[in-house]
Design a binder for these strands. Sequence first.
DNA 1: TATGAATGAGTATTCATTCAT
DNA 2: GATGAATGAATACTCATTCAT
Lengths: 226, 226, 226, 226
Amino acid sequence: MTEKRRRRLPRQVREQQIIDVAVQVFSKRGYHAASVDEIAELAGISKPMVYLYLESKEGLFIACLRREAERLVAAFHGAAAEGELTPELRLRAGLRAFFSFVSEHRDGWVVLHRHAAELSAAIAAESAQARRAVMAEVTALVRTGIEENDGPARLGDEDAEFVAHAIVGAADALTDWMADHPAESPEGMTRRLMNMVWVGMRNVLGGETWTPPPPTPPPDTSPGKG
Amino acid sequence: MTEKRRRRLPRQVREQQIIDVAVQVFSKRGYHAASVDEIAELAGISKPMVYLYLESKEGLFIACLRREAERLVAAFHGAAAEGELTPELRLRAGLRAFFSFVSEHRDGWVVLHRHAAELSAAIAAESAQARRAVMAEVTALVRTGIEENDGPARLGDEDAEFVAHAIVGAADALTDWMADHPAESPEGMTRRLMNMVWVGMRNVLGGETWTPPPPTPPPDTSPGKG
Amino acid sequence: MTEKRRRRLPRQVREQQIIDVAVQVFSKRGYHAASVDEIAELAGISKPMVYLYLESKEGLFIACLRREAERLVAAFHGAAAEGELTPELRLRAGLRAFFSFVSEHRDGWVVLHRHAAELSAAIAAESAQARRAVMAEVTALVRTGIEENDGPARLGDEDAEFVAHAIVGAADALTDWMADHPAESPEGMTRRLMNMVWVGMRNVLGGETWTPPPPTPPPDTSPGKG
Amino acid sequence: MTEKRRRRLPRQVREQQIIDVAVQVFSKRGYHAASVDEIAELAGISKPMVYLYLESKEGLFIACLRREAERLVAAFHGAAAEGELTPELRLRAGLRAFFSFVSEHRDGWVVLHRHAAELSAAIAAESAQARRAVMAEVTALVRTGIEENDGPARLGDEDAEFVAHAIVGAADALTDWMADHPAESPEGMTRRLMNMVWVGMRNVLGGETWTPPPPTPPPDTSPGKG
DNA sequence: TATGAATGAGTATTCATTCAT
DNA sequence: GATGAATGAATACTCATTCAT
């Protein structure tokens, strides 16, 4: 469908085309090494169009961040809306959505945000906000998971956020592992990570000086974790 | 200690001075936004000296990565060498070392490597290698932890690496959380993270289609997951 | 009067609207810093219309120069046509017209022409011609003034032009002074300037080596101070 | 002396070379049309040197304004320092200095400042300050001229400034006339302008509603203008 | 050992101008 | 009559890197 090149297209369409290309280029090269020239050329248009629609290189990057964040959050909501009942299944669905998204849009989320740190205040702010939005989703899943099992507020907000950070960070890093193990499916990733964190999640107790029980409860009796 | 400035110093000393400054500047600004000019000025020498000693900007960055990685690995070894007995305590000591190191050298590890992704092949390689070194330390701790508890080889190398990635990723991300909670000590961070992952670590079973037990085994009966 | 915006208007009206806006924008920003975009937007039309009617940015600027020059010359003529009798009164009326015009259209004359210097040959030519037109008016007033008082041709064309340049230059510069003294009226400006130049005007003798008389004839005693 | 090109020169020298060229280019092309590329090339160096020494195009232009203003003010002082006795001779010397300077550095003063109007705030400020410095010189000359003849303070500060603006404006504009009459010497210009303004200068009376005496007082009687 | 002087190569950004509708 | 879409060409500015001393 790449007709004679450079058809006149309505603004919205062109804007999306540009952002599509920009996400790829920014991800491959990094913010600074990416040149607007290259983005424009790959998008099949001239540089002034990029500036007309996206204002600046920074604006373009922010648009990328924003759109990918929206997509990821949408994926989360889609997963949650599937009517899962138990908290565990909801968290599982969320993680599965994350790994699925990432395995298809690795550029869009992990890479983009790894770069965002070193950039302008505006970009850092946008990235932080996007991460907070995702983190909030995870925190919510985590909190309901904990509460439903242990009664309300056994773990405070701080604890839930700690867990959410840990899970999101683990998932982020596991995208690297996943890249080295192409056979692994998002479902497999999800299962493994769930296995690893679900049992221990609610052991995270903030201020209290809590020493863990004998690390592996003798598998037969298991009087609970106290 | 502010000598007359620019004393003639032996090469090694100068080199360390330069790297010290470079780590700070790279961390604050990012690789591209950092200018050799600034680094040279802060180091109190002229640009040609930087090039004489470190060859290029890339070489300088690699030197930074290498030195910080060495320091972190040393911290790990130092912790492990303290003669801990049980695997849990060894992993705990390692994590504590990590969080201690990071809380004092945040620039040196997390930030540097977050930037490394977008850079040249040489840098990416160095960064990957450094991460692998650290990951290997953690993997070793994880594997002994698992083995000692569950018998040898219950979890394969792949599983141990999965766990290591998850833990390192979680720890990385938790440095952000720690930055928002200045009151939290490395010990606190370690305890929380250990609580969270230690119990579940060995639930990570790669290929097997394993479905977790009822998420929270009714604390009294719990016939184990078998 | 805010019609539905962008009514279809006959060419002449649109053209005047555009020029009105352009004079303001060119004056505020200068030729280069003014953008056709801004002018079009302020005029409430699209850029292609500007090009359809005025050909180019240069053409637009020239149109501005031309119209403002016509207005100023018209003001001169209007003043002269009021049937003043003596040459002094005619010059006075001309200057008053100038200052009045300027105090209301400062943008239109002084500013536009100060910018014209740095621009294209075509613009410089148009500006020079406009200035010559005004200069001719003043020269004429000056010459009749001189002749009537001192007999014909005591001062040649050259001298009259000299005086005209001096007067127009003084008047131009005095617009700055006027801007700093908002209380001053065009009439006041005119009176002051006339007082200053009228007496000396005909002392301007070109080639002759003429030494002024004792500058101020000792009014009577004047022990002076030096 | 244009040796093998691009000798290593100390900063100060290079800086002056750059400014020399910049004055010419800015004057010929105007601020916006002048390109830093052209200036660098004509100065026989590369662009980065321009930026290293002068910071920015704006900074370069300001440096030009400043240096030319200093030169002109110096010319004024030189003229005044020649030990002229009477106020008239001092004003005459000042104007002669001005016309001499301009006939040799036309670019430096008149043209530069005509452009300055449309430029950035910083430039406008620098230009205004330079003009004020020159204006202050002229105002001082004017005031002593007036005072000496008519007793102290017959004309207030405002009046003296009015006269100074008029004279400087006239002189500015007369540079155009002078450009059209190459035979005219600075001395001739000075004589003509002095003849024209010296007699009338002190007729400038601000607030009073003063109607001029019979325009040309019969040169013999005229016991002063009352 | 140490540096001031110098630059080649590259990048973001802007603008006057035109085409297709 | 009127415009949204599109661009070629130019320009200010930066930076890693190297000489000459």
